[in-house]
Each structure stands twice: as structure tokens, then as C-alpha cells.
Amino acid sequence: MTAAVEVSGLVKHYPRSKRGLDGIDLTVGEGEVFALLGPNGAGKTTFVKCLLALLQPTSGTVELFGQPVSSPAARRGVGFVPESPRFPDYLSGREVLKLHGRLIGLPAPDLDGIIDERLIAADLDDAPKRVKAYSKGMVRRLAMAQALMGEPRLVLLDEPTADLDPIGRRDVRNQIAELKQRGATVILNSHLLSEVERLCDHAAIVHKGRIVVKGPMDELVPEGQDLESVFVDLIEKAGS
């Protein structure tokens, strides 16, 4: 079976900064819900951006479904919610989804139906006309809606529940559960460890640009402990 994500020797150095990635090797299998955990500045967002060729790695290779990510075709069937989503202010939510639907090549006759479905699911069907007038939570819900356009095989979620109220967070959890049921691969980058523990079947903990530990969730968290205590212990040990 082809891995959804295959990362080998990934190094990313920023000029005039210590932050980055320092040799990451990682394989995420198809259908896994994979958590990427780590303290602030560990390199999680850098890693996610390298997975989408938004950042050019200093060295190493990244493949999505067996194709090098530098090829745009590798990003077909990939949905992404960034940490701070930003849409063109002058478009409406519907137009944003239409633009993304066209970019991923959804058939024109089906597009309106798919968009209606996504807007209702994101509770944005009666949202203000322009994205400019959206609240932070609405922008995040729109980001989730665009990421799920066209039933992606791989979804990368960078802090998807930030800025969301409890109902919004529950909706995101439900959407991740649906993706898992559909057999899609999800890479989740979140600080909400209780959510991660509930949703993810595999995890990696990143610290100072390196993976400290990785594996199935039930192996990482021994019985009687929770993910938070395991995470804190590991980071404190790695930091010392």
C-alpha cells in the first residue's frame, strides 16, 4: 500500500533563525488520523508547509501518495486548513468555494450543489456577502469547508479548532470522525491534547525541529496515563 505521506531527511533552515526542521523522517499510512504535537515553535507549522511545497526544504524529500510534492499534481486530492486562514476579502463565501472547486477541477454542473452542501455543513449558508465581514470563527469554518471540497484523500489541519466556540469545535471533531470513516488520511496539528487523544490513532511529538517520539496512540500513552502527562514528560526530558 502506498503511504499517504513519505518524508525523508527533511531539513528546513531559515536564514537568521534557529527555528526550522532538523532531519525529519516520517511515514503516514493511508487512512490514518495522525497527530503532530509539540510546543510552540517546535516546527509543526513549518513541517505542514513543507508537506504542501509552500516552503522549500533545505534538504530532504517529501512525497504525497508516491509523487514528489514539488509537482502540483501531488497536491490533487489534498485539503488544507492553515493556522491563520486568509481569503480574498472581496469574494463571498460561495465564491471562495467556487474558486477552490474550479482549481481542483470539480465538474461545473455539480459545483453549485457541492457548494450548497458545504455552506450548510459549515453553517455559513446565511453568512454576510463578503468574507471581509466574517468573524474569525466564520473564516475558520469557511477554511474547513474549502478543505473538504471534492472529498480529499489527505487533509492537513493546522490548529483547526482555534477561534471556534464549543459548537464549532464539536463540528470539527465530527468532520474529522467522518473523514476517518471515509478512509481519508488526516494530519492534525493541535494543542488540544484531549481532542487529539480522542480522534487520532497515530502521533508524533516534535521538539526543536526533531521528532522525539512517534507511533500508534495506544503505544505512546500507557494505560492509566493521559496524552498530556506523556507529552509534558517527554518535552521536559528532551528540553533538559
Partner: peptide, 9 residues
Amino acid sequence: MLMLARPVA
């Protein structure tokens, strides 16, 4: 960012 995360060169 979101547009370049799509299959767009």
C-alpha cells in the same frame, strides 16, 4: 497560501 496548496503551479 490556500490557492498554492491546491494543484496550482
